[in-house]
Design a protein around this nucleic acid. Structure first.
Length: 257
DNA sequence: AAAAAGGCCAACCGCCTTAGG
DNA sequence: CCCTAAGGCGGTTGGCCTTTT
């Protein structure tokens, strides 16, 4: 049995929005705010589901949207952010005022990807294409180790950054602390490419204590942190891997230092 | 001029998390 | 706890428009 899609109970409109529908939604939200999205269509006199209304508002009707094409500065920023955040379009959009995750995603898929390829840059790894292909095809493990090495060297150069521990070995390197812990399946599940790091908070905690739920917090030298059981997870802005942050973190705001 | 191919983008789909009962 | 509904997200699709053959 398939999953029910939104609006399964009634026959609701789908597809492109008419100017009349736009006006109804705009008028309603301007006057009352959206409140509970699921009740918006009824109150606004629309035969749409709440999700559809929300999307239309966010992507098209919101008054603070910037119209028109992307500037080269915006494109460069998107490339930089994508290299750090991966395909977290909503978080990238949060750094580009007036732009939506949907249009950034579309721009990436339709234009930026191709431009990077033309320049000989792999859009997935942001490395030169030849290097990226060699790394992935011949020895992915080696490529991963090299990346880790590069990351750790990069981090050591900046004394203002916190002490970090590679999740793959779970060795804590903060101050005098030097705890060892074995890998768990949870580590591997959440951090498949080993590029997330932890900052130790207390001597008594072990990595096993920090799963599975995190709460978002901030750290002056990180883009994403979370703490649990005296531990704090730090995803460094230069090492943020693609698709390796636990899903539980995804919906929290990432705050930039 | 017509058909095919490609590009673009709005909107949908399905999954996940969260909140509330 | 468990269940359900809502909200949010990223991936994907479908259709319109433009370019190429």
């Amino acid at each position: 049995m398939g999953r029910r899609s939104c609006g399964y109970k009634q026959k609701l409109r789908k597809g492109l929005w008419s100017p009349d529908e736009d006006e109804k939604l705009l008028r309603y939200i301007t006057k009352h705010g959206h409140g509970c999205w699921s009740s918006v269509p009824k109150l606004a006199g629309l035969e749409r589901c709440g999700k559809s209304c929300r999307l239309r508002w966010i992507n098209y009707l919101r008054p603070d949207l910037k119209r028109g094409g992307f500037s080269s500065q915006e494109e460069n920023l998107i490339i930089q952010l994508q290299s750090v955040l991966g395909n977290r379009w909503s978080q990238i959009a949060a750094r580009l005022p007036g732009r939506t995750d949907n249009e950034i995603k579309n721009l990436w898929n339709s234009s930026i990807k191709k431009k990077l390829m033309q320049k000989g840059v792999d859009p997935n790894t942001h490395k030169p294409l030849s290097e990226a292909m060699l790394s992935t095809s011949k020895c992915p493990e080696k490529a991963s180790r090299e990346l880790d090495t590069a990351i750790s060297l990069n981090l050591k150069e900046d004394s203002s950054k916190p002490s970090l521990v590679d999740v793959s070995s779970c060795r804590i390197e903060k101050g005098d602390d030097n705890l060892n812990a074995s890998k768990t399946s949870a580590h591997q599940e959440f951090f498949p490419d080993k590029r997330a790091f932890f900052l130790s908070q207390t001597k008594n905690s072990t990595p096993e204590h920090q799963y599975p739920r995190f709460q978002a917090g901030t750290s002056p030298s990180s883009i994403a942190t979370s703490s649990h059981g005296g531990w704090q997870m730090v995803v460094d802005r230069q090492t943020r891997p693609c698709n390796s942050i636990p899903r539980t973190l995804r919906q929290h705001d990432i705050k930039w230092s």
